[in-house]
Design a protein around this nucleic acid. Sequence first.
DNA 1: CCGTTGCATGAACAC
DNA 2: TGTTCATGCAACGGT
Length: 909
Amino acid sequence: MDSKICMNGVCGATSSIEWKKGWPLKSGEFAYLCDKCGTAYEQLGFCDLFHSEDTGWRECISCGKRLHCGCIASSSLLELLDSGGINCVGCARSCQLHATPNHVKAKAFGTSNSNSVGETPSTSLGSQMNGSEPKKREGSDGVDPVLVLPHQNGNTNKPIGQIKMEEAFHPAGESGCTFSSNLCQASAESSKNVKLDSYNGYIGVNEIHGSQVQTNLSIALSAPSPNTKLFPATVDEGDLNKRISSLQQGSRSRSLLPKPPKSTSAVRSETNAGIISQIRVARPPVEGRIKNQLLPRYWPRITDQELQQISGDSNSTIIPLFEKVLSASDAGRIGRLVLPKACAEAYFPPISQPEGLPLRIQDVKGKEWVFQFRFWPNNNSRMYVLEGVTPCIQSMQLQAGDTVTFSRMDPEGKLLMGFRKASTVNSTQETRLSAIPKSVFSTEPTSFSAMPENLPLMSGYSGLLQSFKGSRESSMNLSSKHFNSGDFSWYLTEKNEGRNADGTFSPSMPVSDRKRSRNIGSKSKRLLIDSDEALELKLSWEELQDMLRPPLSIQPTTVTIEDHEFEEYEQPPVLGKRSIFTVRFSGEQEQWAQCDNCFKWRRLPADYLLPPQWTCQDNIFYHSRCSCSVPDDLTSRELEYLLKMDKDLKKRRNAAGQRTAQAHDSSDLDSHANGTGVAGDVRERGATSVATTTKHPRHRPGCSCIVCIQPPSGKGKHNPTCTCNVCLTVKRRFKTLMMRKKKRQSEREAEIGQRNQLMWSSKEETEVDSFSRQVKPEADPSDRERSGSETLARGHSSNQLQKLPETSKSQLDLNCHPNREDTGSSHLSMMSLLQQASLPLETYLRQNGLTSLVSEQQGSSGSQGLPPDTRESEVRIHEDQCFASTSQEQEQEGTKENSEPDQSGKDNS
DNA sequence: CCGTTGCATGAACAC
DNA sequence: TGTTCATGCAACGGT
């Protein structure tokens, strides 16, 4: 060793207490530097010290730092810019932090340590350095390395070949620079780092990864040195500058993180921070008992800030031990935190009895917790758990996916427990993600923040997810309820409430609820599947359908199935904005949407298809309201009512949904329907409607088209005499269609026969054709009713209805009574049709035996005073599906429902 | 009925 | 293939 000559030409020392590696040589080896020069090199002061008078100094164009461009000793400290000039590695790195993939960045600046390697027998290179005693690195926290360096008993002689691969990825140990290898300048580590540099020259940090594995492997095998600096796994605040400087030496001191745990991508987590001191680095095991068995996933990724936070003002040294991402079980109510076996055995007191012993652990707030550290026999092994962690977990407000970090405070030996929230994402997503296998979602902040990268669509659905959450408080559409707020009277027709009353689009579930739903074990979660919350989730998916809109600017292809026209889209539907549908006492239907900018609620036509994003400026219907500066269309009270009623509807619908599910489970639709009829409960009918809701994009809840009212699949054919709600609906619907068919036929024939007169005919035609387009008071209550209901069908069904097939009912297998409507219109003579068509519709209906429809017409105007029990059932169906009913009406529903079978029977007869 | 406890099971993972 | 560990689940006890 003494035969070496310091390769610093200025120095040329032939002897040194410690030889240090310097810059990479062309041969791939490294310059040997005496202790003094090597130290200067490590401290980035080599050129300052020895070459200050030389030429070649330039300044970093970013920070102005002087860099000796003409010297190999500084070659790794700068980066030549494509545009000319140079950047110091620090500035270059900051740029790359924004341009480099997270994992690359993290890897580039992560640090790690392999204790085993550090203590492996010296290789030739190590032997060259042998004999130099460990010494505290300047800038280290001053803790005796012995205290913090794991004495890997049994590992010292461990063949290198047994070194775990992951450890080979973390050869920092051989360099003595542990977790803070990026924070300190390791002389010995330069054996690897410089080698990297030798490969990469001036390349940026992110360019080294292609060879990192091989490089590090070679380092691991070649650069052990027991005398290399053994850095404690602790960092003092005073080291920050050092760290920064070492980071600036990143290309030299970079070491490699372990491959990120499969379930986590923690290495990404801090890339957005851009703060060097907050770089989350995986700190490999620092305790000897770990014996290299600790999987990288448990390596503490604790930032220096966190360490600082934990240590506080004390002079104690914080030694990160390990961390663990909380599983659902860990964070659940059971209060048991499963400890990694290796960690438990390495860092916690040895226990021989399953009962274990109480363990005092202090949290970051200084509060001391006592957990029972114990184990369960498991096969031939043990399973270590900390029991009684629930209070602590709750205190920290931790949940599955969050990370708890265990550290030890030396010299007291006190155990510390820190945590790291995994939530940079909204709680909704957290909640959902928590249910996703951990292999799917990572738990560190960046993993969430990286979601848009991994799931680009998800970001687009974030609003949807929130909507889902919001929908928890909303209800589905079909249950109806009327409410009256002064003069503000609505029939709430559809769910909504994606936003709170204050306009914020926030999850409706209270924080406590969210926490509760998250911090539960899987078993409880499973149980919740049957609970309201889970039901709400299910309903949310149904709501999703409601939000589906036809693809923008895509014209549907019309296909005819059984003479019914349907719109088909080659592209999948898009998610539209949620809205609330209401119906005023006057029968006017409205749609309420919230501006994405100002969150004000605006009234819109009921048949307007809201795009996914909508602002006041898009309000082409009410120009006086097309600006965000215009006050909200709703008073706070009205909005409160609206949302409150919406919430109530949800509950009602949930109850109905449960009952429906039960009814379906029993495969007894009829009994369900009967029960519904007897009960006369709107909720029941609403539930039935739920099962018959949207089946294609433009169908809205309440759509009564032939598609949406079909019975649920798998339920088979209903008996022709079936009086279940579905069948009744179908029958009523069919009856309406037939009536309209006859009407139109009569009009057409009349038009043919009397081309130059019968202006009424064209009027009727117009009425029919436009019946679904706009809600407006009409002379014919039946038309108005139809208009009302089918407007909610969002036009698509109305299109179908407009194009009602000239078919006989035999073409419709809708489980309707075979004898129904046998009084076909085909037997009508032209003259009779003309005569009938000239009559008022009511008279027409009566003459055609459609007395029930007469009742319907009357019933449809029941809200204007006619007894509701005389209304035709279709009206009620429409109301049930689309509108709310007044409480009075609801009470009367029972009566009507009771009479409904009879009514249907009359219809069928 | 509900929460706790101790063990069992099996998927995921490392080797 | 063996190990780890997340989670299931039955037994048990308390209310």
